[in-house]
Amino acid sequence: MSGIALSRLAQERKAWRKDHPFGFVAVPTKNPDGTMNLMNWECAIPGKKGTPWEGGLFKLRMLFKDDYPSSPPKCKFEPPLFHPNVYPSGTVCLSILEEDKDWRPAITIKQILLGIQELLNEPNIQDPAQAEAYTIYCQNRVEYEKRVRAQAKKFAPS
């Protein structure tokens, strides 16, 4: 494992614990031996107030490669969400998460999670990743928002 990646992720964890947006979660997972795995984080993004996503808490896994922060983490909703920019596998399609697009090593975990929260309610229809959600979003916004509200209710924190 890269010392650069681990040191950056340790800084990220410290900064997150000191200050993070209300309702968001970002925690490194534990290895079988109980030690912390900084390369694999369990996160959760709350649906934004005043949107059909409100009330939901959407679980996301963030996986970092050894060359982080040169390369972005892979962000994957578990379980996958109904959304035009979420692949059926759950992987998020967002330009700041793509090395050859808008990724920059200075982007923080907090910025990534806030960017994904923004994307939930403002899909990028130029870059669809899920045919069904994309089609319904474009053709029947009322039905799309109904499905999103049902999903938010399903993923409401207990």
Score class of each variant (00 low, 15 high):
T91Y: 10
G115M: 04
M39L: 10
S95H: 00
K76W: 12
K110H: 09
P123Y: 05
I96N: 02
P84A: 12
Q151P: 02
S158Q: 12
W53V: 06
C93F: 00
K59R: 13
D100R: 07
K49F: 13
T29E: 13
I45P: 07
L113H: 03
K59M: 07
L120P: 02
I96F: 04
L114F: 11
N124T: 02
D127T: 15
I136V: 09
P88W: 06
G50M: 01
A10K: 15
K30L: 06
G47L: 01
Y68T: 06
P46D: 05
E118V: 12
P105F: 01
K74A: 15
P84C: 10
K30M: 09
T108C: 14
N140Q: 14
G23W: 07
P128N: 04
C93D: 07
F24M: 10
Q126R: 14
S158K: 08
F82R: 00
V92E: 00
R104A: 10
F64Y: 10
A150S: 12
E122F: 11
K101Q: 09
F77S: 02
K65N: 15
P105A: 14
E143G: 09
P46L: 08
F58T: 06
K110G: 05
S7A: 01
M62I: 10
R13M: 02
A15L: 12
T108A: 15
P73N: 02
L97I: 15
K59T: 12
I136A: 11
R61D: 11
E132M: 09
P80D: 12
L97G: 06
P69V: 05
L114T: 12
Q11G: 08
V86K: 08
P52V: 08
Y137Q: 06
S89N: 06
D33H: 00
W41V: 05
R104L: 03
P21L: 05
A5P: 08
Q151A: 03
K65T: 14
L113S: 10
A26M: 01
V86E: 00
P72L: 01
E122Q: 12
V27Q: 01
P79N: 15
L60W: 04
P69D: 03
A10I: 06
W41A: 08
D100W: 05
R13D: 03
A129L: 00
P52Q: 11
P123R: 02
Y134I: 07
N37M: 11
S89L: 09
I109Q: 05
D66K: 09
T51P: 03
K14C: 15
P28S: 05
E118A: 09
F77E: 03
P28A: 10
A106P: 06
D127V: 00
A152H: 02
A152F: 07
C93H: 04
S95I: 00
F64H: 03
I125E: 06
I107M: 12
T29N: 15
D33V: 02
L113K: 03
G47Y: 10
C43W: 06
L9A: 07
F22T: 01
P69H: 03
G56Q: 04
P21I: 01
I116P: 02
R8T: 08
T29D: 10
L97S: 09
C93L: 04
L114C: 13
I96W: 04
R61M: 10
E145I: 09
F58A: 06
G90A: 05
G56D: 02
I112K: 08
P128M: 03
G23R: 04
Y137T: 10
Q117P: 08
Y144H: 03
L60E: 03
D19G: 07
C138I: 13
G90Q: 04
I112Y: 00
K48N: 10
I107Q: 11
C93S: 00
T108Y: 15
R149V: 09
E132F: 06
A156W: 09
N140L: 02
V27G: 08
A131K: 10
H83L: 03
D67I: 05
A10E: 01
E118C: 10
P84H: 00
W53C: 03
R13Y: 02
E78I: 10
L63F: 13
D33Y: 03
E143V: 10
Y87K: 03
F155G: 07
S89H: 15
S89M: 15
L60G: 09
N40A: 15
S158M: 14
N140R: 10
F24A: 02
T108M: 14
S95P: 01
H83G: 04
T51L: 01
P32D: 14
S70G: 14
K59S: 12
A106W: 02
R147M: 12
F22V: 04
Y68S: 04
A26G: 09
D67H: 15
R61Q: 11
T135V: 14
K59F: 13
M62S: 04
A5L: 09
T35K: 01
H20Q: 00
V92R: 02
R104F: 02
F64E: 06
I4N: 06
P72Q: 09
A106F: 01
R61I: 09
V142S: 14
P88D: 15
T108W: 14
P128L: 00
Y134A: 10
M39W: 09
A26T: 00
I107C: 15
E99N: 08
A131W: 01
E12G: 02
P157N: 10
L57H: 15
P123Q: 00
H83R: 00
E145H: 02
E145A: 12
T29F: 15
G115N: 01
F64I: 11
Q126L: 11
N31A: 08
E122A: 12
A26C: 08
P73W: 02
V86D: 02
A133L: 07
W103N: 01
A10T: 11
K146S: 15
R61G: 09
S2P: 10
E54Y: 07
K110A: 04
R149H: 10
P46S: 07
G56Y: 04
K146G: 12
L119W: 10
T108N: 14
S7R: 08
I125K: 04
K74G: 15
F155L: 10
L97T: 15
M36K: 07
L120R: 03
V86H: 09
